[in-house]
Design a protein around this nucleic acid. Structure first.
Lengths: 243, 243
DNA sequence: CGGGACCTTGCGGGATCCCGCAGAAAAAAT
DNA sequence: ATTTTTTCTGCGGGATCCCGCAAGGTCCCG
């Protein structure tokens, strides 16, 4: 059994390396990669590796790497080891995990023991391990209580990219009015909606822009999510006929 | 001489601790804080400490902590030790450094030696040390070539917060039209501007929203910058008469 | 089968945004 | 001091956004 580490911080890398050797004595080889690209390559070469990786690395972020790795070998077991439990990350991960795959998500702030336990659970016991904090986020996110539909999240991303209503309608195969309906939904859920009738109100906010702002502040969006969305978008634009 | 470490990652904290003891044998005490709040408190107590701190910590981010510390004791020497050289961070730092203060900005990716050298330069030789990469950013940012004016940056932040033209005008003491002029400037510099006349154009983008998006993608804005701006804004809103 | 909950779509209108045009005011250069 | 350059400002209009209203559609449940 081999384990592949994908993590750009050398300190964390060596810490992980030690933790793995300690927790998994049956492991006979630890590989290291310092970004998503070389990580993918190594994963391809060494067929049977389990993987521990960071999200957010500079070159190629963890989620993209994980996506391609899982696309090539869906049974790969991946433990995500991240600083944050941003909704954007959690959602990003759960969007790409293949059906029935074994994976984990533990925070870097977790204790030594928890990390080691997670390593054994995932790689030996074939059992998923999600940090309670992350799990909480996930629940809140998917459970309807104050959670966002896939549709709502999608349109949030679209306006965050700066698309017009019309462009969104085109992209999502909707009428412009429907797009606006979804936007309204979104505004309400984000608590940005202006109850109207405020005559003397100083309606200081541009709803569209404000929605994006609070989404960022709430970590519903973050840099890497935006980056992914941007590359998706340019792909779509390229496929579009030039009018 | 004492040194105060403000850094939320325990691994990095202990690494820093060792590096400091090795580089500064004349140092007779190293304190540690794991977020901006307790860092400020410690800095207040132990009057004469030099400081090494991370930007982006969860509780209270580095720039805010540094600002209050410098406000209380402008001659404090601070070494910023960060993962990133985002324009948002660099700009944030150079905005708050008091005249004549000694400080440094080195990346976590820097070598051991560079870190130690920086420690000695700043705390012993009273000399500023800015990583070349960061310095490059700074130049590009301040030099007019593809750089953003303070005014432009300011309005960028305002639309990122979701303010309307009118609200911005009020806040910055301008006419609405001037705000729009500045916006136009911004759009041009961000390469978002639409040359107009495209009849069949794919004007797929809402300029305002798109500007924010590319600013994020280029790391001209980031979460912590937005957070700071948001608290500034709510402060201002509170001071505003309620019509 | 009828009613209810939900989503989609068109229409219309008021508010906002984007921006060319051109004069006034301020700042910088000569 | 005068010219040049930049910035600020009002006006006007077309495009876009925001959203109430109302007419279908779909799906599920009794």
């Amino acid at each position: 059994m081999k384990v592949l580490i994908i993590e750009d911080d050398p300190l964390h890398r060596s810490y992980l390396n030690e933790a793995i050797r300690a927790a998994l004595p049956e492991c006979d080889g630890v590989l290291e990669a310092e970004n998503g690209n070389s990580g993918e390559r190594l994963a391809r070469d060494c067929k049977s590796a389990h993987i521990v990786m960071d999200l957010q690395m500079s070159q190629r972020n963890g989620i993209e790497a994980a996506r391609t790795i899982w696309k090539e070998r869906p049974e790969t077991r991946i433990l995500f080891w991240s600083n944050y439990s941003d909704e954007a990350y959690v959602r990003g991960v759960s969007r790409i995990v293949p059906a029935g795959a074994v994976y984990g998500y533990v925070l870097k702030s977790a204790s030594d023991d928890r990390l080691k336990l997670a390593l054994r659970s995932i790689f030996i016991e074939s059992q998923c391990v999600i940090d309670r904090e992350v799990r909480g986020m996930q629940q809140r996110s998917l459970g309807n209580v104050n959670g966002f539909t896939e549709a709502e999240y999608e349109i949030l991303v679209d306006i965050a990219l700066g698309l017009t209503d019309r462009a969104i309608a085109q992209r999502r195969n909707l009428s412009v009015r429907s797009v606006q309906n979804r936007l309204q939904q979104l505004y309400i859920k984000l608590g940005v909606y202006q109850p109207l009738g405020n005559q003397d109100d100083d309606s200081r906010f541009n709803l569209r822009a404000r929605a994006v702002a609070v989404a960022f502040l709430r970590k519903l969006l973050n840099h890497s999510a935006l980056e992914r969305a941007e590359t998706d978008l340019t792909g779509w634009l390229a496929r579009q006929p030039h009018d």
